[in-house]
Design a protein around this nucleic acid. Structure first.
Lengths: 190, 190, 190, 190
DNA sequence: GTATAAGCGAGACGGTACGTCTTGTCTTGGC
DNA sequence: GCCAAGACAAGACGTACCGTCTCGCTTATAC
């Protein structure tokens, strides 16, 4: 009992992995609406109670399955040029939101959060987009000496692309170079 | 057969109104997730078939019931000062997205659109936010002689506030005056 | 609306028949313990709600499916000789309890009634065995001028065979001629 | 290894007693239908595996917990008057079947035996009712010089009361004096 | 005025996911 | 090797909603 899980059979790591794998597959195959706890359990070859024991909703499973991927996809290397970093980040953001597997999960959860307080709380527990942008935003703010708060700058950076994708506009119409330039212009204002 | 509906009993306007009224009430009372076609029909005192006859999903009913009202909430009077108009529009936008009844319906549908192509098509059939911003955006563009396209400017105007609200951030933290200024600064760039 | 079922789609007689047929088949195939509402519905090609709508438990379905058969199997023609009628009834009773399809259902329900008050009430609503014996019992009582009440005579007639079968004794060891003679001897007592 | 249990920790007598005690309590509190192996284990403060290790079903636990006690409830002292002994036995039988704690367990198992061959075999392994009646039946048979076999006489003695109780008839309506007289009359027949 | 036709409320239909429950087994650490 | 704890796969429970259907009734136009 070194790991504090008390007595009894320990949690099956293989069952956990099978569930997370299954939910990943199913999201692509059937979409979020047709994703069900029953379907996840059956696809994972796992009892339904086992899924309910560790996750309380399909949103929670999806969140755990995708959040790690999301953080990785949204991390971009830093360079000496803040403007270039901003543009690279915007490229990664658009790729994530519009084309990535994990991004589809994120959009589904963000959507669900609009009418389910539990999902909203889940997403709020980890501000995936905000965190991913924090480094590049702070570097740009420091370089420009702007008066904008970190939160204002983050919304300014992410907002336009976020709105573009979530409102269903054509993703190819996004000019990240221009977005980066606009962002820097605001930060450089006296 | 003056109105082209052929023979047979004409559609009941009172049933239509009862359904739209019921869906409005129910959204507030039980939320989008618990909104069901069955519940709408029962609340409206209407047969379920009658609801299905005219709308194919709860999203369609909600769209007709609430979202179309959004346009009036988002229309702001024009003045001679584009900057003031931009700020007034942003105030209306934030009030709509974060505090309005119709805005809650809009956010629910926008969320649903992230994983339901039918709802996405429904929302795409009329770009409510983009249309509402068109006048003020075009006026500002004309006044500043910017190189930004209408679509770029729209995303720049709406995006930050949109992201702020949909990502669950504190609504009171939105400074529309600052957002308007940032927007104008980008448009005024050489 | 002549038959009082009010408005709405009328009950499907084919669904009712399919359920009763299915429960009959399943009792034989899988036994009472493995009989489930889910199984009945699936076997009948019927929604589960449809079964629950008209019967509240597997016991009720089984009761409705078997009671008519039971009454028919237990009815014996009357003759002029009460002793012969008594013996004929006992033959029918033993055949029903020990060898009949409907009798298996009856024994299952009688067993369930020992620990389920709802099933007990269901069986009490129609005293199948008592009713079936009433004619022959009353005729014998009239012929003998006994002091035994109808209920006493019924228990005396049915009891020994009933106990023999339900306690798991060998059915072939039942001598209905002897049982009939014993019964008549008690009735003929001064 | 003097007591034949081989190596390893010996069976815990306290666990065994706790299980039997728990099943006794639970039968009264929740009834047979709601009695579960899980519930028994939890009530006894015992692992589920421990219950399964020594009994294979709730019927077996119940049998060991209650039904074996039945023998003492059904044993009546012998006198010189077979008729009085018969009546005393019938009084004990009715009290057991209809009012005793152990009798409730017996009726539950008898019922279960009607649709579960394992339970039927369990009950058949020891003919509790028949054994309890053997002495009084044999004494009466000897005193009367009847032609009835032991099995026939047993069914005649027990059957009417057994049927009366198990068919849900009013227990207070049983006249054991009359039943004893009827039984003796048949035995005394030429 | 009398068909004909379509809409209406009601509610049953077959289907299927929900979240909970019990089953019997398995896997820990502790005694 | 037994024990308590508790996770495991399996699958039934009874409820809810899905979208469709079938009723009798109502309300129109068309003949």
């Amino acid at each position: 009992m070194v790991d504090g899980h008390g007595r009894g059979r320990p949690r099956s790591e293989s069952a956990r992995a099978a569930v997370l794998h299954a939910v990943d597959d199913l999201l692509v195959e059937v979409g979020y609406a047709a994703l069900t706890m029953k379907g996840i359990a059956e696809r994972a070859g796992v009892g339904r109670q086992t899924v309910y024991r560790w996750w309380s909703s399909k949103a929670e499973v999806l969140y755990e399955a995708s959040v790690l991927d999301a953080r990785q996809e949204l991390s971009v290397p830093r360079s000496d040029d803040p403007r270039k970093d901003v543009e690279a980040y915007l490229d990664a953001l658009v790729a994530f939101l519009a084309r990535s597997h994990a991004g589809a999960a994120y959009r589904a959860l963000m959507g669900e959060a609009q009418h389910d307080p539990d999902v909203a709380a889940l997403l709020a527990s980890r501000d995936i987009l905000g965190e991913s942008a924090a480094d590049v935003v702070d570097a740009a703010r420091a370089a420009c000496g702007t008066a904008l708060s970190s939160e204002q700058a983050t919304a300014l950076l992410i907002g336009p692309a976020f709105f573009h994708v979530l409102s269903g506009r054509d993703v190819d119409g996004i000019d990240t170079t221009a977005l980066a330039e606009q962002f820097m212009r605001v930060l450089e204002a006296p």
